[in-house]
């Protein structure tokens, strides 16, 4: 009775990996697995490194180096090197789609340089290695700087023709290599990483264009040489095709002022003046972002899906070329709803 049964996987005999890193391409893959090792109540993060031909193979090889069975069901983040992403992401994730014990709710993160450095950095954190990145992404998602893409939601985009993926991009700049920071979002085109990264201050406008529900966008600039900071609370968007090659995007923003060291806004006329300034400023920023997207043929906005619904005949296999040549007119209208506690 106590010998256990066929499918028994005793939790105490399994090592729960929370962070996985993959780099290289097929044939010479390298994977890293971070898991906590418990020593009298304290847990210490151990990192296993393994080579192999594909992702599963590296995992099997890694298993040889751990005294317990390795389990990826609790994995909360995968770090992917730029070289791997450039080769096309989908085929490397196949093993995660297929195996039911694997977690497909893990976040995908692109990293600059060696994946190993990021894995090693996790040793110095108090939180669980994978959870650290997961929290990092979630908190940045709140302010619209990065979109949140798990293995599954990324797959839905990767398999869709009319939309391209963007993934959070991390860099390790500090001297001791302990604190990775957000480098922006990496752009994909047709499932492959383009190598181009939107800086965080730009990627937030991608967030604005995508208009995810419940997200806030914070922005600071100078207005008449005085600092001006505001939060965009809500976005209303309207897309339409003016002519086959022109796309018009209207956005209405609801803005709350956060910092504005002027005499005040008691004068109502001043508000519209300020609104016009904000409109212009944001339109410039947005245009810049769209230009980059078009350069890289990365349809992160899902214009392809939109087109497919409105103008089915325009949508074909050549969509990415069409996208690059599309004329996109952005019109931003902002409205200052709140000014904080003072005028």
């Amino acid at each position: 009775m106590l010998a256990g049964c066929w499918d028994e996987r005793l939790y105490k005999d399994h090592t729960v990996v929370s962070l996985v890193g993959i780099e290289g391409t097929y044939g010479e893959m390298k994977s890293y697995f971070a898991y906590p090792e418990l020593q009298s109540g304290n847990s210490e993060i151990t990192i296993i490194e393994a080579n192999g031909i594909d992702v599963r193979d590296t995992r099997l090889n890694a298993d040889l180096k751990v005294e317990q069975a390795m389990d990826l069901s609790m994995m909360s983040t995968i770090l992917i090197s730029e070289t791997t992403a450039k080769d096309g992401l989908n085929k490397y994730l196949n093993v995660f789609y297929r195996d039911p014990t694997n977690s497909i709710t893990a976040f995908l993160v692109l990293v600059e340089g060696n994946v190993k450095d990021y894995m090693e950095a996790s040793k110095s954190w108090t939180t669980e290695a994978g959870e650290y990145f997961a929290r990092f992404i979630r908190s940045k998602e709140e302010v619209s700087i990065v979109p949140n893409r798990t293995i599954q939601t990324a797959a839905a985009i990767l398999y869709s023709d009319g939309m391209d993926l963007v993934l959070p991009y991390m860099v390790l700049k500090d001297k001791d290599k302990k604190r990775p920071e957000l480098g922006g979002v990496g752009l994909f085109s047709k499932g492959k990483y383009t190598g181009r990264v939107l800086k965080p201050e730009q990627s937030r406008f991608l967030g604005l264009l995508l208009q995810e529900r419940g997200r806030k966008i914070k922005y600071s600039t100078l207005y008449n040489e005085r600092p001006l900071s505001f939060t965009i609370l809500d976005v209303n968007r309207k897309w339409k095709f003016e002519s086959p090659n022109t796309m018009k995007m209207d956005y209405e923003l609801e803005v709350e002022l956060e910092e504005f060291s002027d005499v005040g806004l008691r004068d109502v006329n001043k508000i519209s003046e300020l609104e016009n300034f904000i409109n212009k400023k944001i339109t410039d920023e947005v245009n810049e972002v769209i230009e980059i997207l078009q350069d890289e043929k990365c349809d992160a906005l899902g214009l392809g899906n939109f087109l497919r619904v409105k103008n089915p005949q325009m949508f074909d296999d050549n969509w990415h070329e069409t996208f690059a040549n599309l004329e996109i007119q952005v019109d931003i209208k902002s409205e200052i709803l709140k000014t904080g506690l003072i005028h």
Partner: peptide, 14 residues
């Protein structure tokens, strides 16, 4: 719900 993509339902003419 958050990951629903309503544009997947169209176009029906395809």
């Amino acid at each position: 719900y958050e990951d629903f993509e309503f544009r997947n339902l169209l176009p029906i003419g395809e």
